[in-house]
Design a protein around this nucleic acid. Structure first.
Lengths: 341, 341
DNA sequence: AATTTATTCTAAAACGTTTTCGGTTTTTCT
DNA sequence: AGAAAAACCGAAAACGTTTTAGAATAAATT
């Protein structure tokens, strides 16, 4: 409510001088700077971001775009952790974070791009969304600095979890534990799933493992009911797998339930593994074997690179950034090597 | 980038007319309104929120204040669900949501109140934070519309989960299942804990249950290691409880682990219950008995009332709003009545 | 026809900043 | 001491809106 005008009056200087003093410009003396700042604190002055944004075309505000279809937005463990890390990082540089309104409630709703411009975001981070949506594509192709998570666009910064390496590590580990009959219930079709599935097959081939068609099934991510049903199918096979991989940890618990329904023990009778490394997985028994994605790193790198792109567009190298996950061994994959019996 | 000025030029009318046409004011003819709107769409015009906010002192942006101490902000299941519901609700009214930067990284960082003013939030929702923090108190006592979650300030809107009723329902259920030796490991001291603890004692007294001191212990919320240790202590007692209540579901799993460590079965040998109703609790075995907090409702009511307060300050009744939780029976509390044996 | 009333429009100020450019004053150099 | 350079400051325009007060025109009333 107390503006630069008031402050200028109180200091007997011009508004211009006040502005420069507060912004630490070089053409104002140390003495007046000191005076203006003291007075500012005294009167309880603080700037108005709207006016500043209007004038400078910089909002110091970053938008985050995600769609919480089926309750899987903010409550999505992986994404929430990424976002949390992202937020902590940009806060160090004095940015705020705005969740972009993505409801299409009236027919005149803005597109994502329009809304980003409307709010004047300095940059946008995009995650957890259908990347083939035309609105998303338009936003990515605009001149607004953008970073995507787990999806690569041409000539844009992306931070992606190394699903190829993750799946390879997981399969190698399972193989090393003696398993040769490995089933994989994968998630619904998107780029993440594709990376994992192709890595699964590649690794199996390299290891000389044959994967019968009926060992490959599909369920949605976080869909415990789907994995339960698929798991039951797998257990019905005349030659059931000795280990089942799930789309993610959450969905994995659906599979675990199915297995126990059948009176089987984990990992004595059958082994399982998830993907993600959700927090709770390390706190409940059996501790789920999984690939822990480095959400901390993903969020931080996304933030750092987006800010670099915003503040130094010319000197920022635009490329996808890989973040490796880490195998968490847990206790759901049994060692069934001969010598271990 | 195309502004009202451009639009005015293209339409051969004044800027004022354009503004009024787009805002559907009464003193502009239907014909020009139509014309302006058509032209606006044609040129790809959209407003600039900073300019609008500067002029009107309304940002159509709501701040959310929470502190993610110990990773328990966005990744906090209860809060994430509340926030998700909150967001969906305000989006229907065309508001955006900004997570207020609450890092104190340099000594000149703004206070919460200053930041709220700086950004020009129309309102702020406060949750998951130390409500005794002076900065929070200052914000609450300012003239900015505010709603708090799970904490009541005088003369401010609050949406709170009915912990008294929740705990009463839970204890009654446990009692009804035949339990008389009920232990309670409660969370660290705050208003939520106080409600639950006092309700626990009141209900026990009403039921004529004696609660020995050593049945009451403390662990932090979501602290699986703490609950593990406290649980082991309880099991060492010469007269151990037949049922243990935990601070929350997440922490409850720490207790479950401890119990299994000792080779005991749930619920055959000992019963347990949590509090919250986190999603995963319904997907893993054993299904944890708990009080499911109605996060959907809490978020929605907080949003609706905050917006009402923003848009119609005079006619909004200011009072705490109670939201009841629901008993989820799960399968971790055994029926130990004589006839059930 | 003259007056009033209603309708439709515009000019201009204002919101709180930043920035450019020019003008003083002070310091430094010869 | 005088000139050149450096340091410091202010007036004013601009960013994209909304809003007020009034002007111009059209319609309705006497």
């Amino acid at each position: 409510m107390v503006s630069m005008k008031d402050l200028a009056a109180a200091c007997n200087v011009s508004i211009a001088t006040v502005s420069k003093a507060l912004n630490d410009q070089h053409d104002v003396s140390a003495r007046t700077k000191e005076m203006v700042r003291r007075k500012a604190k005294e009167l309880g002055y603080f700037p108005n971001s709207a006016a500043k944004a209007l004038k400078t075309n910089r909002s110091h505000n970053i938008g985050v775009l995600f769609v919480d279809e089926a309750q899987s937005g903010l409550t999505h463990d992986f994404f929430a952790n990424v976002l949390d890390s992202f937020k902590r990082t940009i806060e160090l540089k004095d940015y705020d974070l705005t969740l972009v309104n993505c409801s299409k409630n009236h027919n005149n709703s803005m597109t994502y791009l329009e809304r980003a411009r409307y709010r004047g975001f300095d940059g946008v981070v995009i995650a957890c969304i259908d990347f083939r949506d035309q609105e998303v594509v338009d936003l990515v192709n605009s001149n607004i600095p953008v970073v995507t998570i787990d999806y690569i666009f041409n000539n844009r910064i992306a931070v992606i979890s190394d699903n190829v390496k993750g799946m390879r590590d997981l399969v190698n580990y399972v193989y090393q534990m003696g398993h040769r009959k490995i089933a994989y219930i994968h998630g619904n079709d998107n780029s993440v799933t594709q990376s994992r599935v192709s890595s699964f097959f590649t690794t199996c081939t390299q290891l000389g493992i044959e994967v019968p068609d009926e060992y490959i099934k599909q369920a949605d991510y976080r869909d415990t009911e789907g994995t339960r049903l698929r798991t039951l199918e797998l257990l019905e096979l005349k030659e059931p797998p000795t280990c089942i991989l799930y789309p993610d940890d959450f969905a994995g618990f659906g599979g675990i339930n199915a297995i126990r329904e059948k009176g089987l023990r984990i990992p004595e009778d059958i082994s399982v593994a998830g993907y993600d490394g959700i927090r709770i997985g390390r706190h409940i028994e059996p501790k789920l074997t999984t690939i822990r994605q480095d959400t901390e790193q993903i969020g931080r790198l996304a933030a750092e690179n987006l800010i670099k792109l915003i503040e130094h567009p010319r000197s920022t190298i635009i490329r996808p950034i890989m973040v490796e996950g880490e195998l968490y061994k847990g206790s759901t994959v049994a060692d069934i090597n001969r010598n271990a019996e």
